[in-house]
């Protein structure tokens, strides 16, 4: 049995295989319409999320499977004081695979220790979000035609942004990738990631200004400053509007640049950018559904 807790649980060849399968699912959706009939996906969302939960549910339903689960901890036995591991032991009796989101970091590891079915980490606090990363990798590969030799700009909340952490871990495994990290000093990438980049001799720089680095980027990955990650409301208010991407700023960038965002956005990308062909964040959403279909399929194959 395999779980997906961290994107580095997957070998690069496995990622390639997943992205190939997801591409095929887009091209030949009808071939997969009944591929998961009779199987059940449990979606355990101890922390609210519309997009990721619906994406998982849509993925399973598209393949003819069924879904069950809850959308917040309030509507589960967690509200009665049940432990996470007891919830997982129980739910793994009802379904064939589990996608879970939890506000505590490392919760999916704890779940995987006691589950009888594969666990997919659908986000654990500010820590990891591997299926968003698969979505991001799929989008980069489809848009740029490759995953190596790219300059990736990451902008906004790089401290608590789990999508950023997972993306750095994943992209750092491909050759000739360079990172440009754009954030205020308070929201810089955690040290364990910069240490990992240094240890692997991967080029990166940390800057506070977006404008000066825009011309050199292949990918600009924007993130939202998330209120729920701050203990202190004053810090959130002070930092939330630090970076806003506008059509004026985008004029500084190359025509081959692609602008990505894990969504939801608040105001960090002006809606006027949406019509720019370089904005691919809604394409990312579509890709997310297909790459989750591919992931569910592969993890369930291992169980057979």
């Amino acid at each position: 049995m395999r779980h997906l807790i961290d994107i580095t649980d997957l070998e690069l060849t496995e990622i390639d295989g997943l992205l190939d399968l997801a591409d095929d699912m887009i091209a030949h959706r009808e071939r997969y319409a009944d591929s998961q009939r009779g199987r059940i996906l449990g979606t355990l969302f101890f922390e609210p999320s519309t997009r990721t939960r619906l994406s998982f549910e849509s993925a399973m339903l598209t393949m003819g499977g069924n879904v069950l689960g809850f959308a917040s901890a309030d509507s589960s036995s967690t509200a009665k004081g049940e432990s996470l591991q007891d919830t997982i032991r129980t739910v793994s009796c009802y379904c064939d695979i589990i996608a879970m989101r939890h506000p505590k970091e490392g919760a999916p590891v704890a779940a995987s220790l006691c589950s009888d079915v594969p666990i997919i980490n659908a986000g654990d606090g500010g820590h990891n979000h591997p299926t968003q990363t698969l979505t991001d990798l799929m989008t980069i590969r489809r848009e740029m035609g490759r995953l190596d030799s790219l300059t990736i700009g990451l902008c906004g909340d790089l401290k608590f942004g789990r999508t950023v952490h997972s993306l750095i871990s994943a992209m750092s495994r491909y050759p000739n990738v360079r990172f440009v990290m754009i954030s205020p000093p308070e929201l810089r990438v955690p040290e364990y990631l910069t240490e990992m980049l240094r240890a692997k001799n991967i080029e990166f720089c940390e800057v506070e200004q977006m404008e000066s680095v825009l011309p050199e980027l292949d990918i600009l990955y924007m993130t939202r400053v998330q209120r729920e990650r701050f203990f202190n409301e004053a810090d959130y208010v002070r930092l939330k509007d630090t970076y806003v991407l506008t059509p004026e700023k985008l004029r500084l960038a190359d025509s081959r640049l692609r602008v990505m965002h894990p969504l939801p956005r608040v105001n960090e990308i002006s809606s006027k950018v949406d019509s720019d062909p370089r904005a691919v964040y809604f394409t990312q959403v579509r890709n997310g559904r297909y790459v989750r279909m591919a992931l569910i399929t592969r993890l369930l194959e291992v169980c057979e």
Binding site: S83, L84, Q85, K104, G106, A107, A110
Partner: peptide, 13 residues
Amino acid sequence: RNPRCITTTESSL
């Protein structure tokens, strides 16, 4: 020591 770690709430771990 991470207050966000699952071990802070899942005492059996």
